[in-house]
Design a binder for these strands. Structure first.
Length: 485
DNA sequence: TCTGGGGTCCTAGGACCC
DNA sequence: TCTGGGGTCCTAGGACCC
């Protein structure tokens, strides 16, 4: 998906279309998650500190990420991919490998290109957003092709042309070559893929180590036999928080670690997992980062056990000078727990847990209590979130402060930017709302194809989109102007 | 300019075992 | 009596990706 978070916000808020939009953390230590292509013109890009983005693009719209909203769009797109092949390997919410051959969706260049064209049209029809497609004979090349296709394009790397295409490219093009490896290679006089191949495998192993050296040499020769693997098991679960100001108080550090341990366990349990190794992460005032870990005799999902392990690990960490980040994670995952096995044998743990309050729920209860005791409920309206007003209908929060909240009333289907109105934050007519679908539910067509029916497997079948296709799938999407939905 | 959050994979040393 | 070789597990750190 192209500039996924930012594009989703633009599709959701017509007044932001064609405008610079930056999605990311809005706190003093926030960074950019995604910048719209309009914002990239100003030099704003992912992972940039938000403060710097604001200097570069002071008039852009700044929004916090709405993970649940993006996830629901992601599921629609992944659904379209699964219709092409059972072999779908998600890389993130907005990117996945698909083995078209395994699904019978393509068997040569022509059928592959057609599948890509249909997929892009389907993505647009179903989600209202644009995605880019890279087609090639391996994962590495498909990924490079999709980068070249962005935004809103499709690129095919034809078999036989790989090395000629790759050769002159900078080494940083290859997935797995980041800033450190890039610098390392540059100091060794290697800056292009051709030079990587010329250096030879032994030299690369000497420079970069075994695994990386062999892998990079193979990639430089366009060799990549890695299969597309669906459904990989999670290997770790972790949570972390960066604080707006460094924490100096040792007691406060302790309570934060307990909170993080509880949050981590909630996620662990939510996924039906347990783990053997507890990891504590500390980033100090000077950005130096350390981890401490402890492996238990058996896997656990018990909040008390994880809390205690995290507390023990913290005991061994010097936090003088303050900490900017704390994190708790669990690895060595299993889908059962030692405690469960004992419980089955003894048949009484469940009863005991029912009698005694679960520390996780207890913690939630406590914090809810604390919230209730906070000064008289001034409702908080988060910029960018959807709301509904009894008289004016659906809109989103454009800003709030000083007891006022400003709302723009528009929906994804609005033809022009909506009207803006300001209310008191405690206006009873105003309430939070869920995001609206980006694409209006299709009117019932008796003979029309139905996205929800999973029964079409042949690429010969009609695609679920109108005949009018976007104009920019001619292959090379990299040069032209961005066309937004 | 001052650096998020959630992950994966690799390396390297030491303990331990056979 | 003065020290082998291989394998696994644990811990810590670092690179990289989105």
């Amino acid at each position: 998906m192209d500039a996924f978070y930012a594009s989703a916000e633009q599709a959701s808020k017509p007044s932001l279309r064609g405008k610079a939009v930056v999605v990311g953390g809005l706190g003093p230590r926030g960074v950019v998650a995604t910048a719209s292509y309009e914002a990239r013109v100003f030099g704003v890009h992912s992972a940039m500190p938000m403060a710097q983005a604001r200097r570069l693009a002071p008039n852009a719209a700044y929004l916090v990420p709405r993970g649940g909203f993006y996830k629901s769009i992601s599921e629609q797109v992944m659904g379209l991919l699964h219709a092409l092949s059972p072999l779908v390997e998600p890389l993130s919410m907005d990117e996945a490998f698909v083995d078209l051959e395994a699904g019978g969706a393509a068997w040569d260049e022509t059928s592959a290109r057609l599948a890509g064209i249909r997929l892009r049209a389907d993505i647009r029809a179903v989600t209202g957003l644009t995605g880019s497609v890279g087609l090639a004979a391996s994962k590495m090349l498909a990924k490079i092709a999709s980068e070249q296709a962005k935004p809103d394009g499709l690129v095919v790397i034809e078999p036989g042309t790989e090395r000629a295409l790759l050769g002159p490219m900078p080494v940083r093009t290859l997935p797995g070559v980041g800033p450190a490896t890039g610098d390392h290679l540059r100091r060794a006089g290697i800056s292009t893929v051709d030079e990587l191949a010329e250096a030879g495998e032994d030299e690369l192993v000497r420079l970069l180590g075994k695994a990386h050296g062999h892998a990079l040499y193979a990639m430089a020769l366009a060799r990549d036999e890695r299969p597309v693997v669906a459904e990989r098991e999670a290997k770790s679960v972790s949570v972390e928080d960066t604080y707006d100001v460094d924490i100096h108080d040792r007691g406060r550090v302790g309570t934060e670690v307990q909170r993080l341990a509880d949050r981590c366990v909630r996620r662990l349990r939510g996924a039906g997992l347990s783990g053997r190794t507890i990891v504590l992460k500390v980033r100090r005032y000077d950005f130096s980062t350390l981890t401490r870990s402890e492996t238990l005799r058996g896997p656990t999902d018990d909040p008390g056990v994880v809390r205690e392990a995290a507390a023990r690990l913290l005991d061994a960490v010097d936090t003088t000078g303050g900490v900017r980040l704390l994190g708790v994670g669990v690895t060595g995952l299993a889908d059962f727990t030692q405690e469960d096995l004992f419980a089955q044998a003894a048949g009484e743990l469940a009863a005991r847990e029912a009698a005694a309050p679960d520390p996780v729920e207890e913690a939630e209860h406590e914090s809810a209590e604390q919230r209730r005791e906070e000064p008289p409920a001034e409702r908080h309206w988060t910029t960018g979130h959807d709301v509904r007003h009894a008289d004016f209908g659906h809109g989103w929060v454009q800003g709030s402060g000083l007891g006022r909240v400003t709302v723009r009333f528009e929906t994804p289907q609005s033809e022009q930017p909506g009207r803006v109105r300001t209310f008191r934050t405690d206006d009873p007519a105003l309430e939070p709302a869920d995001p609206l679908p980006l694409v209006a539910p299709a009117p019932r067509r008796p003979d029309g194809p139905d996205e929800e029916s999973p029964d079409r497997e042949s690429p010969d079948q009609a695609s679920s989109v109108p005949a009018s296709l976007p104009k920019s799938w001619s292959g090379n999407g990299s040069g032209g102007a961005t066309s937004r939905p």
